[in-house]
Simulated assay, not measured.
Amino acid sequence: MAYFSKHYHSPGTAPGTLVSTSPSTRPVSIHLIDYTEENVEEERLASPQECQAYLERDTKTWIQVNGPVNVDTLRTLGDMFNLHDLALEDVLNSGQRPKLELYDDQLFLIAAMPILQDDALEIVQVSLFVGKNYLICLCPLEEDPFEPIRKRMRNPSNKRFASRDIDYLLYALLDLITDSAFPVLEAFGDKLEGMELELLEQPRKQTLSDIHRLKRELLFMRRVLWPQRELLTTLMRVEDPLINPDTLIYYRDCHDHSVQIIELLESFRDMATGMLDIYLSSISQRTNETMRVLTIIATIFIPLTFIVGVYGMNFQNPDSPWAMPELAWYYGYPMVWGLMIAITAGLVWFFKRRGWL
């Protein structure tokens, strides 16, 4: 995971310049849903120019663009829906901070959707343009993450989208984007639980690396999702004709989910920090136990080494009164062995009684 993931133009570039910083050959798909209270119509568009026919209708239109959007597609949509150049530039330069921009007759939002890609955290920038009867959503993922919302719209018994204005569709998209953090946090929670058990049983060097990686991902996720909570707060308080008062209760629910996510992130980050202390304490405890065992072994062998050293001097002059009489004893060798065994047993008993073994 890169520390800096924002794409940007060269310093000095004129504002609103649309130049792709990371061109891609992957295809772009455009999925359009045009709906009223009586009917829901879906189309797969081959080009953004085909959206023009739906602008003249008295319907609500959701245009979903998936894949790495190119400059030509952005310019076509910008000219067709009168989108601001600075907003289009923010769409092209991914890695933007979640935010809300108010224009004369439309809203521009950037939201961050966390996903796990090959067991690694990835933050996907989702850009949304909201007008009176249209919503344009641009997502760089090839697989459409908003299919669950389409299933709800296709359900004839679900009249919430049909009976409400376009701001309810905006809530549904933001709610899915916000709630996408919960599966990621669930995976992080499982990782924390596994690392905690590993720390208590048998910590390894790889465990320390895993903790550092998870802590960095949590910090990165918090840095991105914290302004998203501010985005939802601003959306609840903004006075704009595109946001109906009866839809604010849904935005408040989405904001509550965002608060829960931030709280979970804070808790997980504190747990990861505490695991570093547990790892260091565990390593220190293992070192102390090893040193204690080595000290006990050395303590046991100190008197044995002394006895062997004394009787290894071999002063056997029979005429000297200072000669060692034990060297000439018939049972001298087994006596020394018995003495060493007795000393060893006595030291082991003493250490166990003191709780050192």
Rank of each mutant, 00 (worst) to 15 (best):
Q316I: 03
Q316K: 04
Q316N: 10
N317K: 03
P318F: 03
P318Y: 02
P318C: 01
P318D: 07
P318N: 09
D319E: 06
D319K: 01
S320E: 15
S320T: 11
S320M: 08
S320Y: 03
S320L: 05
S320I: 08
S320D: 15
P321D: 02
P321Y: 12
P321R: 15
P321T: 15
P321F: 15
W322N: 11
W322L: 15
W322D: 15
A323G: 10
A323K: 03
A323V: 07
A323C: 09
A323S: 08
M324C: 03
P325C: 04
P325N: 06
P325E: 01
P325K: 05
P325L: 03
E326T: 09
E326M: 07
E326Q: 11
E326I: 02
E326D: 14
E326K: 04
E326P: 01
L327K: 00
L327C: 08
L327H: 00
A328Y: 05
A328L: 06
A328Q: 04
A328C: 05
W329F: 12
W329H: 12
W329D: 10
W329M: 01
W329L: 01
W329G: 01
Y330G: 05
Y330P: 04
Y330D: 06
Y330M: 13
Y330A: 13
Y331K: 06
Y331L: 05
Y331M: 02
Y331S: 06
Y331P: 06
Y331H: 11
Y331Q: 08
Y331G: 07
G332Q: 11
G332C: 07
G332F: 05
Y333W: 12
Y333D: 09
P334L: 02
P334W: 02
P334H: 10
P334N: 04
P334T: 13
M335C: 03
M335P: 04
M335E: 11
M335R: 03
V336C: 04
V336H: 05
V336A: 12
V336T: 00
W337C: 10
W337Q: 09
W337G: 12
W337H: 12
G338L: 05
G338A: 10
G338Y: 05
G338Q: 11
G338H: 07
G338W: 02
G338T: 13
L339Y: 01
L339A: 04
L339W: 00
L339K: 00
L339Q: 03
L339M: 07
L339R: 01
L339T: 07
L339I: 01
M340H: 02
M340C: 14
M340G: 11
M340Q: 09
M340Y: 07
M340F: 09
M340L: 11
I341A: 08
I341P: 02
I341M: 14
A342T: 15
A342F: 08
A342R: 08
A342V: 06
A342E: 12
A342M: 02
A342H: 05
A342I: 10
I343S: 11
I343E: 08
T344R: 12
T344V: 06
A345R: 08
A345D: 08
A345M: 05
A345W: 08
A345T: 12
A345I: 12
A345L: 11
G346I: 11
G346Q: 13
G346D: 09
G346L: 14
